[in-house]
Structures are given as C-alpha cells and as structure tokens.
C-alpha cells in the first residue's frame, strides 16, 4: 500500500506517494528526475549513490524512500549555489579529480561530511574517509588532492598547487 511522504531535497519540499519497498535512490532518480545521484553496485559497496540525509552521508541504494519522510537531503544538484561551484566541485575540477565522472557525485557528497567533521584532514584521514567510495579511473591521488584543495578553500587558506605531478 502506497504511503504519502514529504522529503526536502536541496531545499525544496517534495510530497510523493511511495511503495514501502521503493529505495531512496530510485525515488530521487526516477520519480523526481534528479539523475546526478548514480547507481553503481546496488549493494552498498561502491558509494556512487552517496547523498546527505540530515547532514550525514549515506548510501541511498540501502535506505528506503519511506524512511526519508520528514528528512532533509542534499544531492550533487544541491552543491553549487548562485555564487558558483562548491569548493569540492572546484577542487575536483582544478585537480582533475575525475575521469569518467561516475563516482564523482558520491565522492563529493561523502567529502562534504568528512570536511565538516574534520576541516583539516591528513592524507590518511582522507583515504580512510573515502574508503566507502570506489573510483576505477583516477587511482585516487587526484581525488585526495581535490579534497585537500576544498579543505584549504573552506578554511580560507592559500590553495595548494594544482600542477600535475609526474612520477
């Protein structure tokens, strides 16, 4: 039996009818047509579907849409503002933190919470912090640099060099 729920996504309230078994990622992508949140493994392993629910990064393939009733969600579509890109988006752009881009929305949403809890993480803390997000292109180095760049930008410090390293 369908139930009516209200979910706020990127500041906008959506009242929808959902079957209890509908997964949150399917509500976002298929019913609400926001396709920035990706489905990768569908088994809560890869992190491509990561979004923020009440500020916490979660894998939306393993949460029921009905569980999000009354909650506030941020997806990748909600990162940029009228003033411009979010520091993480800028960091990924400047540091070549993506190749195919499939993992990128999930990586960035995960990094939002990581930087909120720990504004100046070490490289090791970043690597552990994104251990639930798989990237098959970059080898992660540029993702780590992108998050370090965003951290510096959020802290208002001098931005690290975005020159590529040749090793």
């Amino acid at each position: 039996m369908k139930k009516e729920i209200t979910v706020t996504i990127n500041g906008e309230a959506h009242t929808v009818e959902v079957e209890p078994r509908l997964l949150l990622v399917h509500l976002i992508r298929e019913q609400l047509s926001m396709t920035g949140t990706h489905i990768g493994c569908d088994t809560s392993s890869c992190g491509a579907c990561t979004i923020l629910v009440d500020g916490k990064s979660i894998k939306s393939c393993t949460m029921l849409a009905i569980q999000a009733d009354g909650k506030s969600i941020i997806t990748v579509e909600g990162l940029a503002t009228v003033e411009g890109l979010h520091p993480l988006q800028e960091g990924f752009k400047e540091n070549h933190g993506l190749h195919c881009g499939f993992c990128t929305p999930g990586m960035m949403l995960r990094a939002v919470e990581l930087l909120e809890k720990n504004p100046n993480p070490t490289e090791e803390e970043i690597r552990w912090g994104i251990s639930g997000n798989l990237c098959r292109c970059t080898g992660y180095n540029n993702i780590v640099k992108a998050i370090q760049y965003a951290g510096a930008k959020i802290r208002g410090e001098e931005l690290p060099s975005t020159e590529p390293e040749f090793v």
């Binding site: 894998k59 949460m63 912090g129 251990s131 639930g132």
Partner: peptide, 12 residues
C-alpha cells in the same frame, strides 16, 4: 567500529 564496512554504512 573502524573496521566495520565503511563510513557511510557506519552512519546507518
């Protein structure tokens, strides 16, 4: 806790 799954899973 650190070894259980990954940060997103540990949030739930």
């Amino acid at each position: 806790s650190k070894l259980i799954a990954d940060p997103q899973v540990r949030n739930m």
